[in-house]
């Protein structure tokens, strides 16, 4: 196409340069050291492109930053490098808002294309009290994505493990199908894939599988992974990768589910988790779930 076009090539970089304000001029106007700012910006770019280590960056600028900002410069005692600086996902479910419609269960099955007998999310319904003073309690139960997961503790092959983003993942290509994790999970959140299929009820049910954990596995076939291994809710990790909320959160008709970064103190989930209404399931077991309920 370019061969036959007479248009002059546009240098987009130059356009951008024109749009961006002059760094030196901006810094001169501020009350802080111009050279320091410019040097830091230059080296920060090096850190991003991998030419400079973040530790070295901190070493170089630590003293001048302390001089410049004094007490405002927080990390005086070395760089604060947390492992997994990204978000730590958590879910809050407001039981007062849940109407027990099972939309989450249905949308979860549709999203993750789970076979018969497997439901990553269920709504446990119970009646409390004596008639006429009776109340229905609907308790949706996805995987709790525990901080101290009993399942990962007992897995003989480390096929199930805790990711930095807080999600408990299963490596279905490593899982040997011993089902110890199903036995050990206090929440019944895990299921074994016996290889059943909806093919009888629905044509083409086996044609597509969900790209769980971002892994495209194509069609569902006899003897093909994940058949013969253990499966569970992954907070719709493949949707998170695209910047979308888990299917159950998105489809909840009563807006009872909230999803976000629990390590960010300003996130909605962090604020709701601090509510006096907040509780977790089977807290006494020390699993520390990342699904928080509001009673």
């Amino acid at each position: 196409m370019g061969l036959f076009s007479n248009e002059k090539k546009v240098d987009y970089d130059k356009i951008v340069d024109k749009m961006v304000p002059d760094a030196r001029k901006e810094m001169d106007e501020s009350q802080y050291d111009t050279e320091l700012g410019l040097n830091m910006a230059r080296d920060a770019r090096k850190v991003i492109s991998g030419k400079l280590k973040i530790e070295d960056f901190h070493k170089v600028y630590s003293s001048s930053l302390t001089k410049e900002f004094g007490n405002y410069y927080a990390s005086a005692d070395g760089p604060d490098i947390r492992k997994g600086d990204g978000p730590k996902w958590a879910m809050v479910i407001d039981l007062k808002k849940c109407v027990g419609c099972d939309t989450c269960t249905v949308s979860c099955k549709a999203e993750n294309r789970t076979p018969p007998g497997i439901s990553y999310n269920v709504v446990m319904e119970s009646l409390e009290g004596e008639f006429p003073n009776i109340k229905a309690v609907n308790l949706p139960r996805p995987c709790m994505q525990c901080d101290k997961p009993a399942c990962a503790q007992v897995c003989p092959t480390r096929a199930t493990y805790k990711m930095e983003n807080g999600i408990v993942a299963i490596d279905n290509d490593r899982c040997i199908g011993c089902r110890y994790c199903i036995v050990a999970c206090p929440y019944g959140a895990r299921s074994f894939d016996f290889g059943d299929s909806y093919e009888q009820e629905m044509q083409g049910a086996n044609d597509v599988t969900s790209p769980e954990y971002g892994v495209e596995r194509g069609n569902r076939e006899k003897g093909k992974t994940p058949i013969g291994t253990v499966r569970k809710c992954s907070f719709c990790f493949h949707r998170l990768q695209r910047g979308e909320e888990p299917a159950c959160v998105e489809t909840c008709i009563g807006d009872a589910r909230f999803f976000g970064d629990i390590s960010d103190p300003n996130s909605v989930v962090s604020k709701l988790a601090a509510s006096p209404r907040a509780f977790r399931l089977k807290e006494e077991l020390g699993t520390h779930p990342n699904v928080i309920y509001l009673r």
Binding site: T157, R174, C175, I176, G177, R179, F192, D193, G228, V230
Partner: peptide
């Protein structure tokens, strides 16, 4: 469930 992977343990 996956006997062929037994050595993974």
């Amino acid at each position: 469930g996956r006997p062929e992977r037994m050595l993974n343990a």
